[in-house]
């Protein structure tokens, strides 16, 4: 095959490759070191006379260069065409495959766990059927204390066996079983004797956390709350308000509010004209709680916080009724 034939054949092959994108194969056909058509011709050069070599050599080199450049150009054009192809429709979904979905509450719990795990917190767990001892007494709520009314208890065997009214019962158990330093978060189910409506249910989720160590102060509590809210609301400039709030298991106690996201603090129906929305309760772990758990409150101090999860989950996922969240959902 003469050089002209070779060039012509290459033109035909190139045209085909432009359509299919088979440029690698084209390259190998002509320029493979072992069996490329041009390479073969070059290998045959020594068999020609010096004059023929003078004429043929540069032509072959020219052809090789032409083929290389054409392939490279063709490849570039081909890729560009593919990307700009007008037939591409970004609105057509990928053929359906079975992808599972985690429950919204699990997703939020994981999101919160991620934050606290980063700061060295473990995750705590414990029974939902609880004794009054761990649910109340160890949290500085003696029998008959008026603040018991803050939580309408569901009793399994009154007065000693009940369904835990908060995840603080795990705090009682962890403080009893582990020595400081302690950093634990507890996501979990809780129960109260409430009539169900859109936002309240006798079954709900709380997210609790506590830290006990030497040198822990209310300043540390404020710091972690600031960081946590920045993370939770994905807003580093989020404004928080710390105010006094009584919880039996802490002293001093604090309520934490964020500036109302709907009215920017001016007061609206959502925030009951307060300008702030209540997010959680916290405080320094009560002297008596540490003492009852066998931790010397003169040596160790700690803080704890707790929050309801469900309203947050409902707000994030646009679910209007707590009863739907736990039984009324389907995933598409």
């Amino acid at each position: 095959m003469s050089n002209i034939d070779l060039a012509e054949q290459f033109s035909v092959d190139l045209e085909e490759a432009v359509k299919t994108g088979a440029f690698d194969e084209l390259y190998l056909k002509y320029l493979s070191k072992t069996h490329g058509l041009v390479t073969q011709k070059m290998k045959e050069l020594p068999t020609f006379s010096p004059d023929e070599k003078k004429e043929l050599g540069p032509k072959l080199n020219e052809l090789k260069k032409y083929i290389e450049e054409s392939i490279e150009k063709g490849r570039q054009n081909y890729q560009q065409v593919q990307i700009l192809d007008a037939d591409i429709d970004l609105t057509i979904p990928y053929p359906s495959v079975n992808t599972g979905y985690l429950h919204p509450t699990t997703q939020i719990i994981r999101q919160m766990n991620d934050f606290f795990r980063y700061y060295g917190f473990s995750i705590g767990e414990g029974p939902e059927i609880e004794t009054a001892e761990y649910n109340f007494r160890r949290l500085n709520l003696p029998e008959g204390h008026p603040a018991t009314d803050l939580q309408d208890t569901l009793f399994v065997n009154e007065p000693d066996i009940l369904l835990r009214t908060h995840t603080s019962s795990i705090e009682s158990r962890v403080l009893e079983n582990y020595k400081p330093p302690i950093r634990v978060v507890v996501p979990g189910k809780c129960y109260r004797n409430e009539t169900a409506n859109l936002t309240n249910s006798s079954f709900f989720h709380q997210y609790q956390g506590f830290v006990v160590d030497k040198g822990i102060t209310i300043q540390n509590l404020k710091w972690i709350m600031e960081k946590f809210h920045q993370y939770l609301f994905e807003d580093v400039s989020i404004e928080l308000r710390f105010r006094y709030k009584y919880y039996p298991e802490v002293s001093p106690g604090m309520g934490v509010d964020v500036k109302c996201r709907f009215c920017s603090g001016l007061g609206c129906a959502v925030c009951k004209q307060r300008g702030w929305m209540e997010v959680l309760g916290c405080g320094m772990i009560h002297y008596n709680t540490l003492k009852t758990s066998g931790i010397d409150p003169e040596v160790y101090t700690g803080f704890a916080w707790g929050m309801g999860l469900d309203r947050l989950v409902m707000a994030k996922f646009g679910i209007s009724d707590i009863r739907k969240l736990y039984g009324g959902l389907a995933y598409l």
Partner: peptide
């Protein structure tokens, strides 16, 4: 203020 001690 951030907690100064090492994570347990």
């Amino acid at each position: 203020a951030q907690i100064q001690s090492a994570p347990p």
